[in-house]
Simulated assay, not measured.
Amino acid sequence: MLIGELSERTGVSRRLLRYYEEQGLLESTRSANGYRVYETEAVRTVRHIRAMLDMGLTTQVIAALLPCARGGEDAPLDLEMCPSLVVTIRRELADLDARIDELQRHKGALAAHLA
């Protein structure tokens, strides 16, 4: 399928699809006229990328997790417990906890000025 069809089927802009490809998250081939051509599997891949982005993961982390992603085109994301997956998820959770702690400190400091 061409990039326009992939965009329509996933609701993701052509610009973002090209970005995902630049980041190594999505693959295409080129037709004789230079157009990007995607396999039908790309719909599932894009949906998995979007689900992981919604989890707050970076494209670098997503690249590492994509091989562990399961689920059909319309199925929700399911992550198979690949060897590096548990380590990656624990690291991401620790980073989130640290950011939440920092935001709580900022909130407290700002709230103190209102009191």
Rank of each mutant, 00 (worst) to 15 (best):
E41P: 00
E5F: 01
M52Y: 04
I62L: 11
P76L: 12
L2C: 02
E39I: 14
G34V: 10
T88E: 09
P67N: 12
R70N: 12
D74V: 12
V37P: 08
A64M: 12
R44P: 05
E8M: 07
M52A: 08
H106T: 10
V46K: 02
V61F: 02
G11C: 05
L103E: 10
I49W: 01
E27D: 11
I62G: 02
V43W: 02
T88S: 05
V86A: 09
E27N: 09
R70H: 14
R90T: 09
R30C: 03
L96S: 04
H48T: 02
S84R: 09
Y19T: 01
A112P: 00
T10D: 10
M52I: 08
L2W: 02
Y20T: 06
R44L: 08
I89H: 01
Q23Y: 06
N33H: 14
E27W: 04
I89M: 08
R30M: 02
L77K: 08
E27R: 08
Y19P: 00
S28E: 06
L79R: 11
I89W: 01
V61T: 12
T40G: 12
H106G: 05
E92S: 06
S31Q: 04
E27Y: 04
A98K: 09
T10F: 07
V43K: 01
T40Y: 14
L25M: 14
L25W: 03
A112F: 06
E5G: 00
A109E: 12
V46Q: 08
L110W: 05
E102D: 13
E5N: 01
G108I: 09
L26P: 00
D101Y: 12
D95M: 14
G4D: 13
Y38M: 04
E102W: 15
L26I: 03
L66P: 01
R30Q: 00
A69T: 02
H106R: 07
L96C: 06
R14C: 07
H48A: 04
S31M: 04
D97K: 13
S7W: 03
L65A: 10
P76M: 12
L57S: 03
P67D: 13
D54V: 10
R70Q: 15
H113K: 06
A94F: 07
R36E: 05
I89L: 10
E27P: 00
P67F: 13
T59F: 09
G108A: 13
L93S: 04
R36K: 08
R30F: 01
P76S: 11
V87T: 13
R91H: 08
D78E: 15
A42M: 05
